[in-house]
Design a protein around this nucleic acid. Sequence first.
DNA 1: CTTGCACATGCAACCAGTTGCAGCTACTAT
DNA 2: ATAGTAGCTGCAACTGGTTGCATGTGCAAG
Lengths: 146, 146
Amino acid sequence: MSCENETAVALRDAGQKVTPQRMAILSAVRHAGEHVTATRVIEQIQAAQPYVDPSTIYRTLSSARELGLVSETDMGTRDAEFEWIGKDRHHHLICKSCGTAMSLDNRYLDGLATQLIEELDFEADLGHFAIFGTCAKCRTQNREEN
Amino acid sequence: MSCENETAVALRDAGQKVTPQRMAILSAVRHAGEHVTATRVIEQIQAAQPYVDPSTIYRTLSSARELGLVSETDMGTRDAEFEWIGKDRHHHLICKSCGTAMSLDNRYLDGLATQLIEELDFEADLGHFAIFGTCAKCRTQNREEN
DNA sequence: CTTGCACATGCAACCAGTTGCAGCTACTAT
DNA sequence: ATAGTAGCTGCAACTGGTTGCATGTGCAAG
Ligand SMILES: [Zn+2]
Ligand SMILES: [Zn+2]
Ligand SMILES: [Zn+2]
Ligand SMILES: [Zn+2]
């Protein structure tokens, strides 16, 4: 099944209608292969279909987030970044000192999820976290300076 | 040392000036004892000092967040909530089904922090997370319905 | 294929939050 | 105590994003 069909099925399963606008918008996020801002999506969509209104794009991204099709995360730029949620969940470590962002495999949060279920009977949905801190390189530099 | 003095020292340590506006704004967040939205702070401040401009309040909350004095978190309402960061860090578990929010002690994230340091040499600052999922009550209800 | 309707879209008005700037004030150094 | 300066504040203009509404469209039922 193609990407487009999967997206359409996901929408219908959620009781939403499949429209050309939604398919174009979600396809743009999906095929970006990286995080995209709403502004970037608007530029991209309007380049091909200028009649599509920004409000439709904001609404589509927002409902897709509620459906769990995409994640919305503040990576430190204060401008929300959207990303298609595939089967391989991941998170990000972001250095507050040098700004570098790296991916973090979901398994690092397995322990936490297990603990929450076993101790508190809470089933966490650990979607797509941005974890801020100081990276290895900057930690070394800081140590040398002192 | 009083709360006010602690706040003033924190500001000066960060190279910022201590002004009556900032003290009033940060005091409002600090003594709220719970999460507050920017709108709520604006109402509260302007009730006593109507001349204080909303832009000053947004700017103060924003710089206090950068300094690590307060946290800013989306608890699912899509309206950022600010909270004074005291010595006892905590996080929140929020049920997507019933909306209940409960506190989560920081020790639940100790394991993750240790893992990130030891395996990736990344010093995480696990500030104030909102973890979404399904609470015990709603999980029981869901099981009964099936 | 046709009909009916609930929901999605485009448009325009609207609003919360941001930004640029001129004057003011907290702090520092005499 | 005084003067100098960096940076904070209030104001007003602006802008990204949201909302209300009339029209259009996907889709299910017949
Ligand atoms: Zn990501
Ligand atoms: Zn770094
Ligand atoms: Zn909290
Ligand atoms: Zn619940």
